[in-house]
Simulated assay, not measured.
Amino acid sequence: MNYRKDFIPRNTAHSRRPGNAMNATTITIHNTGNASSSAANERAWLTNPSNTRTASFHIVVDEREALECIPLNENAWHAGDGSGAKSGNRTSIGIEICESGNYAKTLDNAAGLVAQMLKERGWGVDRLRRHYDWSGKVCPRLMYDGGKWTGWAEFKAKVSAKLNESKGSEKSVKKDVIVSVKVGGKKIGEGVVDDGVTYVPVRVVAEALGACVTWDGANNAVQIEKGAK
Rank of each mutant, 00 (worst) to 15 (best):
C212K: 00
A21C: 02
N11F: 05
D133M: 09
G147R: 10
E165I: 12
K5Q: 15
T198A: 07
D6S: 05
A153N: 13
D145M: 06
S169Y: 13
N109R: 07
D176A: 12
N23F: 01
G33C: 02
A13H: 11
N34I: 05
V202M: 14
G112I: 14
Y132A: 07
V173Q: 08
R10H: 09
V183H: 01
G88S: 04
Q116P: 02
H30R: 04
D145A: 05
T150R: 12
R43Q: 05
P140N: 12
T54W: 07
G185L: 01
A161Q: 15
D62Y: 00
N75P: 07
I8E: 08
E96S: 06
I93Q: 03
M143Y: 00
S166G: 02
A218F: 08
H78V: 07
D6N: 11
A79E: 14
A76P: 05
P9V: 06
T214A: 01
Q223S: 12
R10W: 11
Q116A: 14
N164V: 14
D108H: 06
F57H: 14
V213H: 00
R130Q: 13
G33K: 11
E74D: 06
E74M: 07
M22E: 07
K187M: 13
T12D: 02
S36E: 09
I188Q: 01
P9R: 01
G168W: 05
A110W: 02
V192M: 15
E225Y: 00
T12M: 04
V200P: 06
G185D: 06
W134D: 07
A21W: 03
S83R: 08
T26M: 10
I70M: 10
C212R: 00
G33Q: 01
G146Y: 13
Y199P: 10
L209Y: 02
G184N: 03
D81P: 03
S87Y: 09
L128K: 09
D6G: 02
T198C: 06
V204N: 00
A76N: 11
A157P: 10
E68Y: 07
G191V: 13
K158M: 15
P140Y: 05
G210M: 00
G196Y: 02
A44H: 05
E225W: 00
A13S: 14
N11P: 03
Y144A: 00
T47D: 11
D133C: 04
R127P: 05
A39M: 01
E65I: 10
T91F: 12
S87N: 08
K186M: 02
R121L: 00
T214C: 01
P201I: 02
L46M: 15
D62E: 07
K171W: 13
D62H: 02
M117I: 12
V202K: 04
R10F: 03
G112P: 04
I188V: 15
H78F: 10
K226I: 04
C212Q: 05
G84W: 00
K187H: 01
E165P: 04
T54V: 08
A39E: 10
Y3S: 03
V202L: 15
A79G: 09
S83Y: 08
G168M: 10
N73W: 03
K174G: 13
